[in-house]
C-alpha cells in the first residue's frame, strides 16, 4: 500500500431500490414469479457489481399495497443480500411508496459522494392513491432527478401511462412482461443494465444527445410462447 496523502479511499455506492407492487391483483402466480425472478437475479447483480469494483452496490426494497413499507430499509451490500419473499395485500398505493423513496433520496441520508441511484418499479395495475404527488416528491430531490429509472409492466392491466410518467423520458418505454418467462427476463435486465448505466460517466444534456438514457434502453423480449400469458 502506497502512502498516498489525502486519507482513506473508498469506492462509491450505487443505491438500487426495488419498488414492488404487492396489491391483490398480484396474487398467485404473478407474485410467486416475481419473488423467483428477483431471487434468481441476485447472483447476476453480484456479477455486475464485481465487474465494477469502483461501485459498491447497495440494495433496498419497498413494497406497496394498502400501505407502503420498506421490505429492506437499510441498504444491504449485494454480497450480503438475500431475497425474502414479498406477500400480497390490498390496494396499489404507489404514491406512498414514492414518498418513502423520496425521503431516502435527500442528502442526507444519501451521500453527496455516490453514483446515480437506480429506481426499479414493477407494477401490474393502476395506482389507487395520489401517485403524482409521490412522483413529484421524488423529482424534487437532486438524486431523484439524476436516478436511473426502469419500469416493468406486468400483464395487460398495468397502467403503462403511469409507468411512462415515472420514467420521465419519452425515449424510454416501460418493459412489458406478459408471462413468467418475460418477467424473469425483464427483472434480469433491470437488475444488471441499470446498474451498469448508473456507474458509467456520460456527457450532460449539453451534448444534445440524451446519452445517459440510451445506455439502458430496455431490450426487446422474445414473443412469448408460454401457455401462461397474463
Amino acid at each position: 500500500m502506497s502512502d498516498i496523502p489525502g486519507g482513506p479511499m473508498a469506492n462509491r455506492p450505487v443505491h438500487f431500490i426495488w419498488l414492488l407492487d404487492c396489491s391483490f391483483s398480484m396474487q398467485g402466480e404473478k407474485i410467486a414469479k416475481l419473488n423467483y425472478a428477483i431471487r434468481e437475479a441476485v447472483p447476476e447483480m453480484r456479477s455486475v457489481a464485481h465487474d465494477n469494483p469502483a461501485a459498491q452496490l447497495l440494495l433496498r426494497t419497498v413494497t406497496f399495497s394498502t400501505t407502503a413499507q420498506w421490505h429492506h430499509q437499510t441498504p444491504v451490500p449485494v454480497d450480503d443480500f438475500t431475497w425474502q419473499d414479498v406477500q400480497v395485500d390490498g390496494m396499489t398505493n404507489l404514491g406512498e411508496a414514492l414518498h418513502l423513496v423520496a425521503r431516502e433520496l435527500q442528502t442526507p441520508p444519501m451521500p453527496q459522494r455516490a453514483l446515480k441511484p437506480v429506481l426499479a418499479l414493477v407494477s401490474d395495475g393502476v395506482p389507487t392513491d395520489d401517485w403524482k404527488a409521490g412522483l413529484k416528491a421524488v423529482d424534487a430531490t437532486p438524486w431523484g432527478r439524476k436516478a436511473v429509472r426502469v419500469a416493468i409492466a406486468i400483464g395487460a392491466d398495468a397502467d403503462r401511462g403511469v409507468l411512462q410518467e415515472f420514467l420521465g423520458n419519452p425515449e424510454l418505454q416501460p418493459l412489458d412482461a406478459n408471462s413468467p418467462k418475460q418477467l424473469a427476463a425483464a427483472i434480469r435486465w433491470a437488475s444488471t443494465a441499470a446498474v451498469k448505466a448508473a456507474s458509467q460517466p456520460v456527457a450532460g444534456d449539453g451534448s444534445g444527445v440524451s446519452t445517459a438514457k440510451q445506455s439502458y434502453a430496455p431490450p426487446v423480449l422474445d414473443d412469448d410462447d408460454d401457455d401462461d400469458v397474463w
Binding site: L115, K116, P142, V202, A203, G204
Partner: peptide, 19 residues
C-alpha cells in the same frame, strides 16, 4: 456544488464554449 453522479459537461456539448 459538485455535480451528482458521473454526469459532466463536455467538449462535445452543443455550445461547449459557454461551459
Amino acid at each position: 456544488e459538485e455535480d451528482l453522479g458521473d454526469e459532466t459537461e463536455s467538449l462535445c456539448g452543443r455550445e461547449a464554449w459557454l461551459s
